[in-house]
Design a protein around this nucleic acid. Structure first.
Lengths: 338, 338
DNA sequence: GGTTGGCACTCGTGGACGCAGAGTGCCAGG
DNA sequence: CCTGGCACTCTGCGTCCACGAGTGCCAACC
């Protein structure tokens, strides 16, 4: 167990390093923070902290920098979440209020997050799986070809072509449309399969095949997690990363282009609050020198998707966490209103 | 007017510089290319080329590098478009054939272009303005609230909410839907305004306001150029840019995030074939050290959108132009099929 | 036992220096 | 107009050295 002062020393090291980007030494520490002890004492503490793996020195005889483990302790025990100031909150709200549709909400959120945190922002589109159906529309494009359009409460629209096993009359189509909507409109996606289960039975034998096909396409659309999209922004902030560019930045850019990787990254964070994954805690090795701060957001009480930022492990955790949390909150509000 | 040999020298300089990324000197030139003259002669030619602004030397007593003007001459007069090999063409086709919907086509195109050219790829979504209407759907969400869904021949779906001035019955809605589709289905966007002009006259006085509102929303959607979206990819290739990273790469990343800038960039290229804009020819100053190679693509004869790549001015122009042209061709085919 | 000042040691950084190597411009001769 | 030769000018790189920041350890002190 670390003594109170050692924790303070660790906190000071993290804060200074985040600020200056340079390894911090014992003397500088005692000057900038009033720890009430001499550099020599701090050196002893540092040796202990290094022994335990919380800090490390890049070269012999250089200052110390925090390790992933050190940041972890800092985030968990030594720092809170820094709340946004009132003007900042107002700015967030104003900026998001200008959005005209879902795409715009997401786009604005990305920009906002990137600007606030000066890091790379990632926003997942509201997921289908937890939202509710607003309307299902069926259009007959050809005798045996139907287009299915699904509109969700988050304003998202998905469309699918359905090739029917048999021609399907306008009347039957209208019938199906009406029945379908009366059953599923306003219901949660997860409930839909149960609700439409016996729907084919209400139709003539000749139409049943088509009805089943349409329904299974609908169900596919609902559960299709692959379709999850996201938007990223603020990649220009990567240039603030470090001095050894090509090696640091390249794998990060590559990882960011792999939506699959990012979705997995966001998906892994199960915590209901703000989640921080530091350095090697990220499974993807291109992101081993980055931290990911993420949180769920949604209209109403429940989270329907995630958003977050990706930045160097050397980041201002309290500030970033505050910004991410605040943005998520306001996006949730916007979605709930629309 | 430059003599034939001087043009050959310029061509050789461009090719060598693109290959090695290092200023090229007279001796190296005569060794790698069989010009049939001595280094001293080449030096004289180089002096002339420099005088005319086609090449420059970074420092006194270093080799020469092409200027923007030099690249321009190279592209216009000295190099053709390098066609893709048969296996490459097959690979392109196979890769694009796997696409399941419009988003997927665009996403795959971006990946493909980025991989082929090892540069940043930009693909604009097929624009609304030049395509045709496949179907217009109207859904009644509330007595005085209609959702308008527009489906285009390129598979794109746009939806808009319409707040009606007066309640609008299901029967009237169905009537409008039928009349609207019979008039505009299969027609080009530009023809739509003329075709629906007198549509309100066919309705009862009480419904005319609503019909007009719906129609004007439809027309808005059709002409709305702001809604043009694009997808970019391959930003990781920026790391191959140069050695002086932060300064070079940052403005490029920033420009790439401004969709407006990119759209303008693509839009400026009026040429029906492959267009190349080199260095300072790009209006946006963040892109002053990049070249943009773009081309229109579309289903059928006419271009409905653009795609292209952004890379350092020092790029393999013939190869890049070939790749861009080939990809555009196959994307056009895919769109025409679907 | 924890804290402190002192001291020797380690290394990375940055400036000065010098040396090659590549490239140039110019000139005189073919 | 081309060519070989020659003197000149840079950049890049490696070496060397001195400086400074920072450390670890130890003996002394509270």
């Amino acid at each position: 167990m670390l003594s109170e002062r050692r924790l303070q020393v660790l906190r000071a090291i993290v804060q200074d390093y985040v600020g200056t980007e340079e390894p911090v030494g014992s003397k500088a520490l005692t000057e900038r923070h009033s720890l009430g002890v001499s550099p020599a004492t701090v050196r002893n503490d540092m040796a202990a902290l290094e022994e335990d793996g919380y800090i490390a020195q890049p070269h012999t005889s250089a200052g110390r920098i925090p390790t992933d483990k050190g940041y972890r302790l800092f985030v968990d025990k030594l720092a809170g979440v820094k709340p946004m100031t009132a003007p900042e909150r107002r700015a967030i709200q104003n900026f998001l209020d200008g959005a005209v549709d879902l795409d715009d909400v997401v786009a604005r959120t990305v920009r906002l997050l990137a600007q606030l945190t000066r890091q790379v922002a990632v926003v997942q589109y509201p997921s289908l799986t937890r939202s509710t159906v607003r309307h299902v529309e069926l259009l007959s494009l050809a005798p045996a070809r139907v287009m299915l359009v699904l509109i969700t409460d988050t304003g998202r629209v998905e469309q699918r072509m359905v090739d029917c096993p048999a021609p399907f009359g306008e009347a039957s189509l209208a019938d199906l449309r009406a029945r379908l909507n009366s059953r599923v409109a306003g219901r949660r996606f997860t409930d839909v399969p149960r609700l439409v289960e016996d729907l084919p039975d209400a139709f003539e034998a000749e139409d049943r095949g088509t009805v089943s096909t349409v329904l299974s396409t609908l169900l596919e659309t609902l559960v299709e997690e692959n379709e999850e999209r996201l938007m990223i922004g603020g990649t220009a902030n990567l240039t603030r990363f470090g001095h050894d560019f090509p090696l640091t930045i390249r794998p990060v850019l590559e990882a960011l282009e792999e939506q699959v990787v990012l979705l997995k990254l966001l998906g892994e964070a199960k915590d209901p609050g703000v989640t921080v994954r530091i350095g090697h805690e990220n499974a993807h090795e291109g992101l081993n020198s980055t931290s990911v701060v993420s949180v769920g957001y949604g209209s109403g009480g429940e989270a329907v998707a995630k958003l977050g930022v990706v930045g160097p492990t050397r980041m201002d955790y309290p500030g970033t966490m505050g910004a991410v949390r605040a943005v998520a909150r306001y996006v949730g509000q916007i979605l709930a209103e629309s």
